[in-house]
Amino acid sequence: MSRDSAFALLFDEFRQISAPALWLVDDNLDFETLPAVNPSVHAFTNRFDIYQGLTERGWQCDFCDGLENVTANHYHTALIRIPKEKARAHHLINQAAAKLVANGKLIITGMKQEGIKGFIDRAAKAAHSSAESWKADKQTWAAAVTINQFTPLDDQDYLTLRQAPRDESFHFWSKPGVFGWDKIDKGSALLVEHLRTLSAGVEIKSLLDLGCGYGYLSLHSHRLLGAHISATDNNAAAVAACRENFAQFNTLGEVIASDCGKSIESRFDAVICNPPFHSGFGISGDLTERFIQSAARHLTSEGVAIFVTNLHIGLERKAQPYFQEIATPVVTEHFKLIRLRQPR
């Protein structure tokens, strides 16, 4: 992973912190560039892999989507590397401002192409203050805003679940913070269309949905196959939305926060997956292999794993060390369905 200069700017500030500080962190944190643990800094993240990584390295860290249970007016500094989604960025700024002592400092960093200048300007205006800005280079900015009074930014009511995408079977509960939160992914719809055909000949009593999002594949898998569903995602917002959909539609199963299913020990008759090969995750060979490896580890010897990917993802080649039977029975203009059996 290339060095994130916006995180580097943020980490420069850690060395000066001695009073309680709040660090709101998500997206692709590079653990190799982390500074030494600062006991005054308390991290909060909506990414389970980041929560595990920071905790293992000795940082104070909580896994959550919001800060409703965090004491207000407690922290002297709040630090944010701006995330990619505008609603979440505004939510983090609002949450940070609410947790700072009077005249506390909000420090935000980001890249010019991510709109960091706009976030700095909006944060300063909301604080009825000015921003002290500096740069690492022409593309990487940081700013400190003093928070006394604060008018919250529009975060699209970030924490509230709402009925957003719908199809002929379900009106799904979702929210900002979940990838594609207000849409039905076309690749996932293709998988559902062919799920019964591709799972034919396998008795499916249990099914694992890797990277479940708000639960589209899980709910349809339960509807079509009647299996017990274990859904897992790395993102706290997705876990919350999927749990709500399970409750609303009486889906038999559970929703588990986990990084690529790493903390799940059970094996399943079927594994389904629409891997998160999109902006914010990248199309990395390592990530591809991690999802395949997880599917192989969690599949019974007679089970079936079904992946949907974009055409350009070479998942079949990556799957060869992990599965004996690899087929691509469905190919469309943009997607392909890959059927994997007999884990090695």
Results as ranks from 00 to 15, higher is better:
residue 172 F to H: 12
residue 172 F to T: 12
residue 173 W to I: 13
residue 173 W to H: 15
residue 173 W to K: 12
residue 174 S to D: 06
residue 174 S to M: 06
residue 174 S to C: 09
residue 175 K to H: 07
residue 175 K to G: 06
residue 176 P to R: 00
residue 176 P to V: 03
residue 176 P to Q: 05
residue 176 P to E: 04
residue 176 P to W: 00
residue 177 G to D: 04
residue 177 G to Q: 02
residue 178 V to W: 01
residue 178 V to E: 02
residue 178 V to R: 04
residue 179 F to M: 06
residue 179 F to P: 01
residue 179 F to K: 01
residue 179 F to A: 03
residue 179 F to W: 06
residue 180 G to W: 02
residue 180 G to S: 12
residue 181 W to N: 04
residue 181 W to S: 04
residue 181 W to K: 03
residue 182 D to R: 11
residue 182 D to A: 13
residue 182 D to T: 10
residue 182 D to F: 08
residue 183 K to H: 12
residue 183 K to D: 12
residue 183 K to T: 11
residue 183 K to S: 11
residue 184 I to A: 14
residue 185 D to Y: 09
residue 185 D to M: 10
residue 185 D to V: 10
residue 186 K to F: 13
residue 186 K to E: 14
residue 186 K to Q: 14
residue 186 K to R: 15
residue 186 K to V: 14
residue 188 S to W: 10
residue 188 S to Q: 14
residue 188 S to G: 15
residue 189 A to F: 15
residue 189 A to R: 15
residue 189 A to W: 15
residue 189 A to G: 15
residue 190 L to C: 13
residue 190 L to N: 11
residue 190 L to S: 10
residue 190 L to R: 10
residue 190 L to E: 10
residue 190 L to F: 12
residue 190 L to I: 12
residue 191 L to N: 05
residue 191 L to P: 06
residue 192 V to P: 01
residue 192 V to C: 08
residue 192 V to S: 05
residue 193 E to F: 10
residue 193 E to C: 10
residue 194 H to T: 08
residue 194 H to N: 12
residue 194 H to E: 12
residue 195 L to T: 05
residue 195 L to E: 04
residue 195 L to K: 04
residue 195 L to Y: 05
residue 196 R to A: 13
residue 196 R to F: 08
residue 196 R to E: 14
residue 196 R to P: 03
residue 197 T to C: 08
residue 198 L to Y: 03
residue 198 L to H: 02
residue 198 L to F: 03
residue 198 L to P: 03
residue 199 S to V: 08
residue 199 S to R: 02
residue 199 S to P: 05
residue 199 S to Y: 02
residue 201 G to R: 00
residue 201 G to T: 00
residue 202 V to T: 12
residue 202 V to W: 00
residue 203 E to C: 03
residue 203 E to V: 08
residue 203 E to L: 07
residue 204 I to T: 11
residue 204 I to Q: 08
residue 205 K to G: 14
residue 205 K to N: 14
residue 205 K to M: 08
residue 205 K to V: 06
residue 205 K to H: 12
residue 206 S to C: 02
residue 206 S to Q: 02
residue 207 L to G: 03
residue 207 L to W: 01
residue 208 L to G: 06
residue 208 L to K: 06
residue 209 D to W: 01
residue 209 D to E: 07
residue 209 D to L: 02
residue 209 D to T: 03
